[in-house]
Nucleic acid binder design. Structure first.
Lengths: 196, 196, 196, 196
DNA sequence: AATGAATGAGAGTTCATTCAT
DNA sequence: CATGAATGAACTCTCATTCAT
């Protein structure tokens, strides 16, 4: 009957919204399902009607975030025609997206790592999704002759790591600088690293 | 009167050893003090006689690790006279040290980040200790004319992040490749990134 | 929909009943929440669902008791028209009520005092509630010319103390005399003390 | 060898002093033997060398206090020749002694009651010691014809209770009035209560 | 769909007591 | 005599999960 989202879908997204807030405020382990229920104006039973357990809520959030980040990065690359500019655009988009969603970023970069071995596989997949995107980009650059051949697997990991650390520092340092200020230096460094 | 270490010191290091094992196997939150006690062949009370609480055990471990890593890296740099080789040596040493202490590394790179807000400050300090070492190295390179001026703050963070991610992937991927295989590609990438 | 009390109310009073029994048998500190849970045929979690902590259970009991005692004393005073008889009635009621609720009395007179500094304020209030009642009575006696003016604050405290000690002795002496046997002598003493 | 007190005796009294301080500050249950050890500049083992257990320390203190109070009261009574003045002197001495040892008084009046059933017998004995003293005094007054015959058992309990409550209120009310201010009113009341 | 009461395993921490040195 | 390391039972409190209504 519903067109854009039935009652159930609305409830689910309300719960996810609340969960994001609670998880990023208290950390995965310290976040109580009760807190999520309260924050989403439901009851514990209500949450468990829509999700089989706490883990599933967290995983859903991680998936959503990865999708958001990847699709934005992809889109911004597609919007550029020039190969080098594609990379710059992706980097800028990533930093911009992170900067705009500090909670989400904390969840994605910090909490998810330490949330327990259950999430290791997921984290690996997510890191891989990003590095694969980067690697494809670098391979394209080599194929089109923009850069000389190099170990794109390691390079993509290093790129991701560099961005990751800049972001992590920004998260950990509660009253630090603006994230986007690092963009120019980071871009130059990454470009030069692949001999561009 | 004690020659190598009194009974207390021995007990403390036995507890720390056990804690390292337990923390890296179960994660900070899931590690029970009871597990640590059992693993160190003491009782819970015994653990609490030597440490005020669980957090303190974890922090002690983190400090130990940071000291180990930093001192090894520093030493290996001092052993080289040529500026560029100092960096290579440090990188090689780091990867080698990580590779040789998987548990320790997991604690340091994964668990500690997500263990809770209480450790954020500590993590910031530790990351900073490493990037400061790198930054000093880069500044020296600029001062001696080996490389052109660049934003060494961001560069050092990016370097550390690159290494970090390579190591994190190695940790998360339980049956992956040898860590040290990434050395040549990583070294080239980092070198080139600073225009060397 | 509920007629006499919902499930929750019933559970709460079952817990309070059990708590009264456990507290007066073991003392506040030695009473384990687990004991209360078992005695009320619930689980520990069940108790904590209805009360935020152990202290709150104890305080609820204290309040209930104070209310019971005060309302009974007040009622018995209102039932008499003659001023001196009001006092006698209150005393008789108090002793009778105490005699009929040994556990409750132990809690109120013994455990609550030594349960810890946290309860000092509460105890002060409760003692004050009783002495205020007595003081009002004495003031009324003076106003109506039954007795000569005297320091009713100290007198009411002394009255309460006298009753208190008689009761305390009865409690401490596990196999002693009947409490109510002390009534005539105590009444005469108190009466004479205010010059009646 | 020792004349006034050997090393052992000194240690014991140092421990008792410390215990008094700790017990009255933290209450019986919350006082840790470790605290007492530290406060008396010994070790836990040291305390256990001189006392078989925590209970014994507490009991020793209670005995000491009762002895102190009783002997002072007795002495001040002996110093008076006039029978009614003996009672006044005892009361004044008691209030004065309590007022000068707030910690001790708290221990004696409050903590000891709630410290657990193990101390009930002791408390009974102590209360009895006081009321016996009072009762003997009252009996003497009857025998010498100062007052008319009355139930001196209940009367002595009531007297003790009256004093007790005045003192208890003074203890519970951390920032209340001076204890000795209650003396005149209390004296008049007690005197009149026995028809003096 | 949703609620809230209930469960019960377990967490970190404390502490009286013991005992080898 | 004294020490401090060790023990282990007990404690309060938390929380993911279940389920009758």
């Amino acid at each position: 009957m519903a067109i854009i989202g039935g009652k159930a879908e609305q409830r689910v997204s309300k719960i996810l919204e609340a969960a994001l807030e609670v998880f990023s405020r208290r950390g995965y382990k310290d976040a109580a399902v009760d807190d999520i229920a309260t924050a989403s104006e439901t009851s514990k039973g209500g949450v468990y009607f829509h999700f089989p357990n706490k883990q599933a809520i967290f995983l859903t959030l991680l998936d959503q975030m990865a999708d958001l980040l990847l699709s934005r990065a992809t889109k911004s690359m597609e919007a550029e025609l020039d190969w080098p500019k594609k990379g710059d655009a992706a980097l800028a988009t990533m930093l911009h997206t992170f900067a705009g969603h500090r909670n989400l970023t904390r969840l994605f970069m910090i909490e998810a790592l330490g949330a327990g071995r259950e999430f290791n596989q997921k984290m690996l997949e997510m890191h891989a999704a990003f590095t694969n995107l980067i690697q494809a980009y670098l391979d394209e650059g080599i194929a089109s002759g923009y850069i000389a051949p190099l170990d794109t697997r390691v390079a993509s990991i290093a790129w991701f790591g560099a961005v990751n650390e800049v972001v992590t520092r920004w998260i950990l340092d509660e009253n630090g600088n603006k994230l986007e200020d690092s963009y120019p230096a980071l871009r130059d460094l990454l470009r030069r690293g692949i001999g561009l």
